[in-house]
Computed example of a mutant assay.
Amino acid sequence: MHHAHEHGATITPSSRPYLGDIGTEIAARLPGAWSAQLEIYSHPLWQEDLSPALWEAGDLYRALVDHRVPFASVLKYDTGTELLLIERPGHRSGYLLGALTEHEKEDPHDDPSTPPSIVLPADPQLAAHAVSHTFLPAYRHAVHNRDLNTVLRSLERIREEHQTLQAIKDSGRCSDGVPLGDSRLIAGMERDFADHAWLSFVHVLDHATLLLTRCRPAASAWREDAAALTRLREALASSQDAWKEWNDTRRELYSIPRTLPAHEWSQARGQLGLAVLPAIETWLADSEAFERQARAAVPGGPASLPAPSPRLLTTRPTPPPSPRAAAAHR
């Protein structure tokens, strides 16, 4: 204030609490182990780099697109959930809060599970209540639906290829009409299917276990689904050795300075796909029961906040002190 007066500058203090303080105060009042970190975006490109990480297509998204946002507070849950808190542009009070994600995603405007941002008051107690009772329940539902949709899309891709393969085997002809006179052709097609099926089934292995824990067939209108859910759990359990082998293989290969040739990757995936083929077929057969039970499931409680999935191919760098690198949330 003294230097401003010396240079003839006028400073108008804001009635809005400092973002670094309000973020810390809100985090301290949320259920569970939350923390807050102030981030400074000295260059507009750093602000723009938030867009790929923002899981939101409403007020917070438009604020980042249409306004200069020089700093933000990131609220972090101890399992990896991150929320972005900024001052509400164009208003003398209030804040905007939305979700960040490390998951690859398409345009958030096309994602039906996107959790909407929320306007928070300047009072940290009221703000924390709004986050814990309004935003986080919506966020948990959004994560649940996102993971469910990921599993269902993966199963649909497998189903399409499985039906194509079965139609070729039943007809005795390739898709171009050429007769299958050599059994090696069929074996090759089955290996190709197993390769592609594994790439999709890994998403089932990654997300379905947690989704199944939320299913309560006895409390639903489809109690008879209990047997199908038991079969699905057993199928996942029988695939754990292949899942572990896949993760161990990727971790080992990416820790050494060489690249595995594409055909060797395909061979490795094909072998794993053939190993879990009975589990894949079980999931294809009982996918309808899984979907209706998972749609009816209600995730709840702080414990259901998601832990980040293992990222074996890329690792998120540790954020440096502010000002930070532009790709912090990539």
Rank of each mutant, 00 (worst) to 15 (best):
His3Tyr: 01
His5Ala: 10
His7Ser: 01
Thr12Trp: 11
Thr12Ser: 08
Ser14Asp: 13
Pro17Gln: 04
Leu19Pro: 05
Asp21Leu: 10
Thr24Ile: 04
Glu25Trp: 04
Ala28Glu: 13
Pro31Asp: 14
Ala33Ser: 15
Trp34His: 06
Ile40Gln: 13
Tyr41Arg: 13
His43Trp: 08
Asp49Trp: 09
Ser51Arg: 10
Leu64Thr: 08
Val65Leu: 08
Tyr77Ser: 15
Tyr77Lys: 06
Tyr77Cys: 12
Glu82Gly: 00
Leu83Glu: 05
Ile86Met: 09
Gly90Pro: 14
His91Cys: 15
Gly94Asp: 02
Gly94His: 02
His103Glu: 15
Glu104Leu: 06
Glu104Ala: 10
Glu106Met: 09
Ser113Asp: 14
Pro115Thr: 07
Pro115Tyr: 00
Pro116Asp: 02
Ser117Tyr: 00
Val119Gly: 01
Asp123Arg: 03
Gln125Cys: 02
Gln125Met: 02
Ala128Gln: 12
Val131Glu: 07
Phe135Ile: 07
His141Phe: 07
His144Tyr: 08
Arg146Gly: 02
Leu148Pro: 08
Ser154Leu: 08
Ser154Pro: 10
Glu156Asn: 14
Arg157His: 15
Gln163Arg: 11
Ala167Glu: 14
Ile168Gln: 14
Lys169Asp: 04
Ser171Arg: 13
Gly172Thr: 07
Gly172Pro: 09
Cys174Ser: 13
Ser175Leu: 04
Val178Ile: 01
Pro179Ser: 05
Met189Ile: 05
Arg191Asn: 09
Asp192Gly: 06
Phe193Ala: 05
His196Phe: 03
His196Trp: 04
Trp198Arg: 13
Ala208Lys: 05
Ala208Ile: 09
Leu210Ala: 13
Cys215Ser: 02
Ala218Phe: 07
Glu224Leu: 00
Glu224Met: 00
Ala227Arg: 14
Ala228Tyr: 07
Ala228Arg: 07
Arg231Phe: 04
Arg231Leu: 10
Arg233Trp: 02
Arg233Ile: 01
Glu234Ser: 09
Glu234Phe: 00
Leu236His: 02
Ala237Met: 02
Trp243Met: 10
Glu245Asn: 10
Asp248Ala: 14
Glu252Thr: 11
Leu253Pro: 00
Pro257Gln: 03
Pro261Arg: 12
Glu264Ser: 06
Ala268Ser: 05
Arg269Gly: 01
Gly270Phe: 06
Leu274Arg: 14
Val276Tyr: 03
Ile280Ala: 05
Phe290His: 06
Gln293Phe: 02
Ala303Ile: 07
Leu305Lys: 11
Leu305Gln: 11
Ala307Arg: 15
Ser309Met: 12
Thr315Cys: 08
Arg324Ile: 08
Ala327Cys: 03
Ala327Gln: 09
Ala328Thr: 15
His329Asn: 06
His329Phe: 10
